[in-house]
Design a protein around this nucleic acid. Structure first.
Lengths: 218, 218
DNA sequence: CGTTAGCTTGAGGTGCATCAAGGGACGTGG
DNA sequence: CCACGTCCCTTGATGCACCTCAAGCTAACG
């Protein structure tokens, strides 16, 4: 749980607007901004799905849990990413802030506006592609292959450099990759040992041999 | 490979039209029908993605393969299902007929027609939901839980009865569930032994205790 | 009635999970 | 400024679920 008491979500009453250039693929959202503390729930499974979100700052995880508590993280959302678009009226997964996070909140109808053109189904297809990539990883890759593909994907999403700050804990990585926290930790340590990556604190990673990492993923 | 020499795809030059009632969720396609033999490729990874398909009869698998041949089946498509809608101009996965199959083939632009309204993004979101379900299964469920959820899902898609004919081989099931063929076979045999299912030939399954199967999946 | 492709079954190995301690960083209070 | 607690990460020892390797078996088909 959070080290600080969970903040009540703070809603800014200054109307905000998504600032991205309106490339055809960008979903334009208009709404309010809202802040969330670490580990704070944004919505839960079964909640009404009448809002959509765009990450302004921070990071978000969406996830499903089985009855006995096993958790699978569906995806992580970083600044600029849109999440919360659902097929039905109810949430099929939960969403939580990973760290102190600011979101742009819009009514679902804004995203579904026909004015948006192709952007909504292109968004859905991008999500689908990511989910299918994840399924390939979960179904057919070894632990080190999973971690390698995760680091490469994250590095690219965070700007493409060879140095990155992990926004999430080892437990989150494990629940995304279908592993245990111990296996993730051991795998990262081994990668450091074999010179594939460098660590400066457990959250700061440098990809020293990105080519070798990519080979691991084929 | 196929027992019979792979048939050249037979194209019917009778214009055909998808016959479903135009519920808001149905993608209406107009095109030609085309037949494929067992294990025949419909398209391969990297092919131009300018066509979309609807299954008229038979069954289809889409899949990705790693460099060393490991294969992950993304999904199976049954009569009435639409597949082949892609984000980019190139296929990111391959598609093959599982058995003798007839498809309705349409230009991609037909599916992307704004006239279709919400049906396209609703289709993409349904696919996404299925893929996320699969990710939960691959990441967090045991072999018997995987097989149980697979059988329940398939039974529902095939009409909801408690008796079903598996359209695919054990190998296909294994590659969808992230297991080996041996583990799938053993699991099915055990389920028969414990009275959860009945088998009449390896392709014909009766769900004798669907409730118990559902409990396995939580 | 032989051939073959796919399924099942068995024996043994292994990659990752589980269980259990130890760090190390950070914040809090004395 | 240092003692102390807490949370998270790491490391070690052991176990097991599933994989691998290797035969058999069954059914469909020529």
């Amino acid at each position: 749980m959070s080290t600080q008491p969970l903040a009540i979500a703070r809603t800014s009453y200054t109307p905000a607007r998504s600032t991205e250039p309106s490339a055809s693929d960008e979903i334009r959202l208009v709404g309010l901004t809202k802040s969330f503390g670490r580990d704070q729930a944004i919505y839960g499974e079964g909640d009404p799905a009448d809002l959509v979100y765009k990450v302004i700052s921070g990071a978000v995880r969406t996830f499903r849990v089985l009855a006995d508590g096993r958790r699978q993280i569906s995806d992580f959302y970083l600044p600029g990413d849109v999440f919360g678009v659902e097929l039905d009226a109810e949430r099929r997964s939960g969403a939580e802030a990973i760290s102190e996070t600011v979101l742009l909140v819009a009514r679902r109808s804004v995203a579904e506006d026909p004015e948006q053109g192709q952007s909504l189904w292109r968004h859905a297809l991008r999500q689908l592609r990511r989910s299918q990539d994840q399924a390939l990883t979960l179904g057919r890759r070894s632990a080190s292959e999973r971690v390698a593909s995760f680091l490469l994907d994250l590095a690219e999403r965070l700007g493409g450099g060879d140095e990155l700050e992990l926004p999430m804990s080892r437990q989150d990585m494990a629940d995304y990759l279908g592993l245990t926290i111990e296996t993730v930790s051991r795998t990262v340590t081994q990668m450091q040992g074999s010179g594939l990556i460098g660590l400066a604190g457990c959250r700061h990673v440098r990809l020293t041999r990105p080519g070798a990492l990519a080979e691991l993923c084929e």
